[in-house]
Design a protein around this nucleic acid. Structure first.
Lengths: 196, 196
DNA sequence: GTCTATAGCTGGATAGAC
DNA sequence: GTCTATCCAGCTATAGAC
């Protein structure tokens, strides 16, 4: 019987099935539903394998988060390569799929310290990457970086997008159309209407 | 032995102690820590009383949320009476205290349908009250309501404030100072510097 | 209204056979 | 690597004495 921290291939079938199942449960029923028994049942895999592959449920959550955040940073890179990067970033951030699971992780973080650290690291990397790529772009658009620093613009966009998604989760939409219109108008003023 | 839904005074000592204890646990350890056993222990009250007063844990959460939201709407009313209502609203929304518990309730809502409905109702009431009071104010400030509808401004402010608080919870602060500076500059342009 | 006791369930984690 | 069995903890909720 092998134990955690031994050399377990990251691409084993059972391991992947477990992570996939955990992700599904997390999105559909919230993190409270992500128990070792339910994850293994959902994955069609024996319950003992959860502990064989991850050791603890905490570790499973962490590895799930890492798998997602690597994918997500990779997608962000592609998004920022768009000829209209502000538009692309806005669409990306405003995308519902990412958000449900992100909110679950944030909630999880409130009582799982290890997850908290993972999220912090990821958030900083995410913001850095955006800054790195967009600071120069905004300058070429002629944005006054004193009045409108790139970081401020990014925070306003990200905050608004996430807030809209959060409220939509509760079927609260008051003022959303108007807020979206304002933001998209400002983006258009810099990058023109969205092409493609 | 009385049962739930009988006539139980809302101001009984034990009931209040239980709600207070639940609130404390919710803020400090997250909703997973809010179990009937821990709440009663924290309140210094017998465990059976949780069920005597609330019937189920779901009901306890709901009544806690209601107690808070009534208080919160009342405070919002006062805030909007400030001679500089935009400033006051910004400060209110940007206040850390409210936020920790709000995030917990949002997380809770993901797997407690009844809580979800409570939050939706409250959010709509909150937004309506803001709109009702601020639409006219913004007009007197000379804000062009075509370009900058009151609802859009409220959503942008609320979204940004909550996002900043959320990230601060993870010790992520990149760009926060810049975003705050931009928002406060815009508020100042309408209402002047913050007095008081 | 308050208390004790307990039924009944679900969960994390481990041991050890195969 | 996979599987079964199992220990132990913690939870909701109820029954019923006081």
């Amino acid at each position: 019987m092998a134990r955690r921290n031994s050399n377990i291939a990251d691409d084993s079938v059972a391991r992947t099935a477990l992570l996939d199942a955990a992700e599904r449960l997390l999105v559909e029923e919230g993190y409270a539903a992500v128990t070792s028994r339910r994850v293994s049942a959902e994955a069609g895999v024996n319950n003992g394998l959860v502990y064989y592959y991850f050791g603890t449920m905490d570790e499973l959550f962490i590895q799930l988060f890492r798998r997602r955040s690597e994918g997500s940073l990779e997608r962000l890179r592609q998004v920022l390569d768009d000829p209209q990067p502000l538009w692309a970033l806005w669409e990306f951030t405003h995308e519902a799929t990412n958000n449900a699971i992100t909110m679950e992780f944030i909630a999880l973080a409130n009582h799982r310290k290890a997850i908290k650290d993972e999220i912090a690291t990821y958030s900083r990397a995410h913001r850095s990457l955006q800054l790195e790529r967009l600071t120069a772009t905004l300058r070429t658009y002629g944005v006054d970086s004193e009045r409108w620093p790139a970081t401020a613009i990014l925070v306003l966009m990200a905050g608004t997008a996430r807030f809209l998604l959060m409220e939509e989760g509760f079927d609260v939409q008051t003022g959303h159309a108007e807020a979206v219109a304002v933001i998209e108008r400002e983006i258009s003023a810099l990058e023109g209407n969205r092409r493609r």
